[in-house]
């Protein structure tokens, strides 16, 4: 296996697309726990990983976004947090072999930190730390902290992740006029994350590629760290009782070129993106390979 950071310094990497919306298309019921499928439907999770690998991605993300003790408690699975994280990394590793990097996903805890909510910093650290320990034991190449809206929460997750020694990517979601739900600005966010030791920073989810381009441009001016962009396939729309995302693979492809031109090092997708989107991204990225 190549080293993640040295690969990143010499080429643009392709990250995979959505996991959650793919699981739904394969039968995860509304309100079901996506991470439980690592145990109950491992073959489905691996099918999704393999579809993304076949589409040409260099990095796949584990099915662990919400695998924290607080979120899992809603499904009475809080005691399974460690097991689910470790199992998810193993599924991804089995799918990836040694050709593709495995990045373990860590999403927000799902409660607001004090003083705005009731979650204490120490507890938040313990929750993230449990995920990190399990993911490291599972054999992950890189940790990706994503969809953060509160810079304090991102910092706590980063602190836990950095202790593991593997490279750490950290993304936030900017869906309130170029800021996160909690009001965090892209330039301030990446400066803080750089100081805290993030290896790659960027944006995911929240918006389609068009709005994300503006956010990433601001980040580019603020820091020299490698950047990652993982837009949604637009804003979801309903057709009958089926959710449809409108941004086509071709459009994602056009934006991939623009992301690379402003200096983005990793391009992938979030909600609504499919292996077809990732294949288009990979095709474009290959044309830029140095």
């Amino acid at each position: 296996m190549k080293d993640f950071l040295s690969s990143l310094s010499s080429q643009v990497l392709v990250c995979d697309g959505a996991m959650g919306t793919m699981l739904v298309s394969k039968g995860l019921p509304p309100g079901g726990c996506p991470e439980e499928w690592n145990i109950t439907h491992p073959e489905v999770v691996m099918t999704i990983h393999k579809a993304y690998i076949d589409a040409g991605c260099d990095i796949i993300e584990t099915n662990t976004f919400g695998a924290n003790a607080t979120k899992l408690a809603h499904y009475s699975l809080e005691k399974e947090a460690y097991h689910l994280n470790k199992t998810a990394v193993k599924l991804a590793r089995q799918s990836a072999g040694d050709k593709v990097f495995v990045a373990s996903s860590i999403g927000p805890i799902g409660e607001l930190l004090e003083p705005f909510g009731i979650l204490k910093k120490e507890k938040a650290y313990d929750i993230f730390n449990e995920m990190v320990m399990a993911q490291i034991e599972g054999g992950v190449d890189v940790i990706i902290i994503e969809t953060m809206t509160d810079i304090e929460e991102a910092k706590i997750a980063l602190m836990a992740a950095k202790k593991s020694g593997v490279p750490v990517i950290c993304t936030l979601t900017f869906d309130r006029g170029g800021r996160t739900m909690m009001g965090v600005k892209p330039d301030n966010a990446v400066r803080v994350l750089e100081d805290e030791g993030a290896d790659v920073v960027g944006a995911n989810c929240g918006t389609g590629p068009e709005d994300m381009l503006g956010v990433v441009e601001i980040m580019r001016k603020a820091v020299h760290l490698p950047l990652i962009a993982q837009p949604n396939a637009g804003i979801p729309r309903l057709e009958g009782l089926k959710t449809v995302y409108d941004v086509l693979p071709e459009v994602i492809g056009e934006y991939t070129a623009r992301f690379i031109e402003i200096g983005v090092s990793i391009v992938g997708g979030c909600c609504g993106t499919t292996p077809a989107h990732i294949k288009r991204i990979a095709d474009i990225v290959r044309t830029y390979q140095r």
Partner: peptide
Amino acid sequence: NEIYVPEVL
């Protein structure tokens, strides 16, 4: 978008 969730809370 002049204030955000923390200020509202």
